[in-house]
Every structure is written in structure tokens, then in C-alpha cells.
Measured scan of single mutants.
Amino acid sequence: HRQALGERLYPRVQAMQPAFASKITGMLLELSPAQLLLLLASEDSLRARVDEAMELII
């Protein structure tokens, strides 16, 4: 289940942060499945989480 969510998330994360897409997707997969579904449904929520992840990385 998580694998399938990751496969759906990755291209969207890659479009926002290509250099760190794998790392960010891995970080996002730590969230609950319900939270992941919310990110897939909301571009704004996904962008906010990706921005948060980038702050942790750099």
C-alpha cells in the first residue's frame, strides 16, 4: 500500500524538487496513509510538506 502511494507521490514531488525527489518522497512516506492520501488530493498541502522537507534537508 505504501509502495503504491510512493509511486503516485514521487512524480509530483519530482516536479517540485527534482534533485531531492527520492529523499523527500521517502520522508513523506513516514506519514500515515491517511495523511498521504490528503497530500495526493491537495497540491497545496503537498507543496507545503515538500517545502518543510527541503528546510530539513538544507
Rank of each mutant, 00 (worst) to 15 (best):
H1R: 12
H1L: 10
H1M: 09
H1P: 10
R2A: 13
R2T: 10
R2C: 11
R2Q: 14
R2V: 15
R2E: 14
R2Y: 04
R2G: 11
R2H: 14
Q3W: 03
Q3Y: 02
Q3T: 09
Q3C: 08
Q3S: 09
Q3V: 11
A4P: 08
A4C: 08
A4M: 09
A4H: 06
A4N: 08
A4E: 15
A4T: 12
A4K: 11
L5T: 05
L5R: 02
L5C: 05
L5I: 13
L5Q: 03
L5A: 05
G6F: 15
G6E: 15
G6A: 15
G6K: 12
G6I: 15
G6S: 13
G6M: 15
E7A: 10
E7H: 06
E7T: 08
E7R: 08
E7Q: 09
E7Y: 03
E7K: 10
R8P: 03
R8G: 06
R8L: 15
R8I: 15
R8K: 13
R8F: 14
L9R: 01
L9K: 01
L9M: 05
L9A: 02
L9G: 01
Y10M: 07
Y10S: 04
Y10H: 07
Y10R: 06
Y10V: 03
Y10L: 08
Y10D: 02
Y10Q: 04
P11V: 13
P11S: 11
P11I: 13
P11F: 09
P11H: 14
P11A: 13
R12A: 12
R12K: 15
R12T: 06
R12Q: 12
R12D: 03
R12P: 04
R12Y: 12
V13K: 02
V13T: 01
V13G: 02
V13Y: 01
V13W: 02
Q14L: 10
Q14P: 01
Q14G: 06
Q14M: 07
Q14T: 06
A15H: 09
A15D: 11
A15P: 04
A15C: 06
A15F: 05
M16Q: 07
M16L: 14
M16F: 06
M16S: 03
M16D: 02
M16P: 02
Q17W: 11
Q17I: 14
Q17H: 11
Q17A: 13
Q17N: 12
Q17L: 07
P18G: 05
P18I: 04
P18C: 04
P18Y: 03
P18S: 04
P18D: 04
P18Q: 03
A19M: 11
A19Q: 12
A19F: 08
A19G: 12
A19N: 14
F20R: 02
F20A: 05
F20T: 02
F20V: 03
F20S: 03
F20K: 03
A21F: 01
A21K: 00
A21Q: 01
A21S: 04
A21H: 01
A21L: 01
A21R: 00
S22L: 10
S22G: 10
S22N: 13
S22I: 13
S22C: 08
S22K: 12
S22F: 11
S22W: 10
K23Q: 13
K23H: 08
K23S: 08
K23E: 14
K23A: 15
K23G: 04
K23L: 12
I24G: 00
I24S: 00
I24T: 00
I24W: 01
I24K: 00
I24H: 00
T25R: 05
T25N: 03
T25S: 04
T25F: 09
T25Y: 09
T25M: 14
T25I: 14
G26K: 14
G26H: 13
G26T: 14
G26S: 15
G26V: 11
M27N: 01
M27C: 05
M27T: 03
M27Y: 05
M27F: 05
M27G: 01
L28Q: 00
L28C: 01
L28G: 00
L28T: 00
L28H: 00
L29W: 02
L29R: 02
L29M: 12
L29A: 04
L29V: 06
L29E: 03
L29G: 02
L29K: 03
L29H: 01
L29D: 01
E30W: 05
E30G: 08
E30N: 07
L31I: 08
L31K: 03
S32G: 09
S32Y: 06
S32P: 13
S32C: 07
S32H: 09
S32T: 13
S32N: 09
S32A: 12
S32I: 05
S32V: 06
S32D: 15
P33T: 12
P33Y: 15
P33L: 13
P33N: 14
P33W: 12
P33I: 15
A34G: 10
A34D: 15
A34K: 11
A34W: 07
A34C: 06
Q35A: 13
Q35E: 14
Q35M: 12
Q35H: 09
Q35L: 09
Q35D: 12
Q35V: 13
Q35I: 14
L36H: 02
L36G: 02
L36Y: 01
L36S: 01
L36K: 01
L36C: 04
L36W: 02
L36D: 01
L37F: 07
L37G: 10
L37I: 13
L37S: 09
L37T: 10
L37W: 08
L37C: 07
L38C: 07
L38N: 12
L38M: 13
L38I: 14
L38K: 10
L38W: 08
L38D: 13
L38E: 15
L39A: 09
L39R: 00
L39H: 02
L39W: 02
L40M: 09
L40W: 03
L40H: 01
L40F: 07
L40P: 00
L40N: 01
L40E: 07
L40R: 00
A41W: 09
A41D: 13
A41R: 07
A41C: 07
A41P: 01
S42D: 13
S42F: 07
S42A: 07
S42M: 05
S42C: 06
S42K: 06
S42L: 05
S42Y: 08
S42E: 09
S42P: 01
E43Y: 07
E43D: 11
E43L: 05
E43G: 05
E43F: 05
E43M: 07
E43K: 07
E43S: 07
D44V: 10
D44M: 06
D44S: 11
D44E: 13
D44L: 04
S45A: 15
S45I: 13
L46N: 00
L46E: 00
L46Y: 00
L46R: 00
L46I: 04
L46W: 01
R47P: 01
R47E: 04
R47Q: 10
R47S: 06
R47V: 06
R47C: 03
R47M: 06
R47F: 04
R47A: 07
A48R: 14
A48E: 11
A48K: 14
A48G: 06
R49C: 09
R49S: 11
R49A: 15
R49F: 15
R49W: 14
V50K: 00
V50R: 00
V50T: 03
V50F: 01
V50I: 10
D51A: 14
D51P: 01
D51W: 08
D51Y: 10
D51M: 12
D51K: 14
D51S: 10
D51L: 12
E52T: 08
E52Y: 08
E52W: 12
E52L: 09
E52Q: 12
E52A: 11
E52I: 07
A53R: 03
A53C: 10
A53Q: 06
A53G: 02
A53K: 05
A53V: 11
M54C: 04
M54N: 02
M54H: 07
E55N: 12
E55C: 07
E55S: 13
E55D: 11
E55R: 14
E55Q: 15
E55A: 13
E55T: 12
L56Y: 14
L56R: 13
L56C: 08
L56D: 08
L56N: 09
L56Q: 14
L56P: 01
I57C: 04
I57V: 06
I57S: 01
I57F: 04
I57G: 01
I57N: 01
I58Y: 08
I58H: 11
I58F: 11
I58L: 15
I58K: 11
